[in-house]
């Protein structure tokens, strides 16, 4: 290397051992998208988009992914708190178990869900006999499958945020008379809010793209359980162009939503 280089701008200060792999990584992530764009049937795009089938699948995807994220928040944040803030015996094992849905092939996850929540499953049988409720092949089933696969993303993000947060603020709140629940609600949660949001975004994105567990557990029926990824997969069988269009729609919507949310947070911060 030669002597010190005068910095001319932010880029000049970026060390190349970081810059080169960073750009390579970016290209690696973006190139497949470019491939989709290059092959997209632009001429027939408008009429394909107007198909009620597409809009129906898109609506279902957005609704289920959002509800699944809400479910993950409701269950996952307390779980993350438990993992981060208590000294349960076997916590290490518990944390490993939480990541199981990450490792499990989603289709296997779907089968596992069927074995537990299916009409003849361990818990599902009881649900069916007692209440006549059967989750498979319902929109609720889609939410269940998506939440199962996406929850680890939220739990891991929130647990990390909780561990990084300064617990002395919680002590300060306690000296001011706050019960543990109030401390959690008014101090802990607002302080780890960025981590919760990041986790929720990951969770939502994962739920939106969920395929394997969904089609295995909830099946595929237009308007009820056929989300965009399922529609894309089936379109690939007979009409690859349609599959590309559906994929682009899914991509565009998720990018718009995520970019919109990010701007809002940055603006608020």
């Amino acid at each position: 290397m030669t002597g010190p280089v005068r910095a001319r701008g932010p880029r000049a200060r970026t060390p190349w051992p970081l810059l080169v792999p960073a750009l390579a990584g970016l290209a690696f992530l973006v190139l497949p998208l470019a491939g989709l764009l290059a092959r997209a049937p632009w001429a027939t795009l408008p009429e394909r988009l107007a198909e009620p089938r597409v809009l129906e699948a898109l609506r279902l995807s957005l609704v289920t992914a959002t509800i699944a994220t809400a479910v993950c928040l409701l269950l996952g944040v307390p779980l993350a708190w438990l993992l981060a803030r208590t000294t349960l015996p076997g916590r290490r094992l518990l944390r490993a178990l939480v990541t199981v849905p990450l490792v499990l092939p989603p289709v296997v996850g779907g089968v596992a869900l069927l074995l537990v929540l299916g009409r003849r499953g361990l818990a599902g049988q009881w649900l069916y006999d007692a209440f006549g409720v059967s989750l498979p092949f319902t929109t609720t089933g889609v939410v269940v499958a998506e939440a199962f696969v996406a929850m680890p993303f939220l739990v891991i993000a929130v647990e990390g945020a909780l561990r990084a947060a300064d617990q002395r603020y919680e002590e300060a709140a306690a000296t001011l008379g706050a019960s543990r629940w109030t401390v959690f609600r008014r101090v802990t949660l607002p302080m780890v809010a960025p981590g919760v949001l990041a986790g929720a975004v990951l969770c939502w994105a994962r739920a939106l793209g969920e395929f394997g567990a969904t089609i295995t557990f909830a099946g595929n029926f237009p308007g009820r359980t056929q989300t965009m990824p399922l529609a894309v997969y089936l379109a690939l069988e007979t009409d690859p162009d349609a599959a590309i269009v559906l994929s682009l729609v899914l991509l565009a919507v998720s990018v718009i939503v995520l970019a919109g949310l990010r701007d809002r947070w940055v603006g608020a911060a």
Binding site: E171, A172, A174, T175, L176, G177, A178, S179, R180
Partner: peptide
């Protein structure tokens, strides 16, 4: 701590 009414 929350029931001691001790300011810190």
């Amino acid at each position: 701590p929350e029931r001691r009414r001790i300011g810190v």
